[in-house]
Amino acid sequence: MENVLYVYYARFGLMWYDTELRVWRVVNGLSDVKKVRSIGMAEYYGKVALLWKEHGGCGKEIWCRMIAMGKCEEGVKGTAESAQLLGSVPDGYRMDNCLSVSD
Rank of each mutant, 00 (worst) to 15 (best):
E2S: 14
V4L: 13
V4G: 01
V7H: 04
Y8Q: 05
Y9A: 08
Y9R: 15
A10D: 11
A10Y: 12
R11T: 07
G13K: 11
G13V: 07
Y17C: 05
Y17T: 01
L21Y: 06
V23T: 06
V23G: 02
W24S: 11
V26W: 06
V27C: 03
G29M: 03
D32Y: 02
D32F: 01
V33W: 09
V33Y: 06
K35S: 09
V36W: 03
V36M: 14
R37V: 14
S38M: 06
G40N: 03
M41F: 05
A42P: 06
A42L: 11
A42K: 10
A42R: 08
E43F: 08
E43N: 05
Y44N: 01
Y44P: 00
K47L: 13
K47H: 12
A49L: 10
L50M: 04
L50T: 00
L50V: 02
L51Y: 14
L51P: 02
K53R: 02
K53I: 03
C58D: 11
C58M: 14
K60H: 00
W63P: 00
C64L: 12
C64P: 02
C64M: 13
R65V: 14
R65K: 10
I67S: 08
I67Y: 09
M69P: 01
M69G: 03
G70R: 12
K71M: 11
K71W: 09
C72D: 07
C72Y: 08
E73Y: 04
E74I: 07
V76A: 11
A80E: 02
E81A: 10
A83P: 14
A83E: 15
L85W: 13
L85M: 13
L86R: 08
L86H: 13
V89F: 04
G92T: 14
Y93P: 00
R94A: 15
M95D: 04
M95K: 01
D96I: 04
D96L: 12
N97P: 00
N97D: 02
C98A: 10
L99Q: 09
L99V: 09
S100P: 03
S100T: 12
V101C: 14
D103W: 15
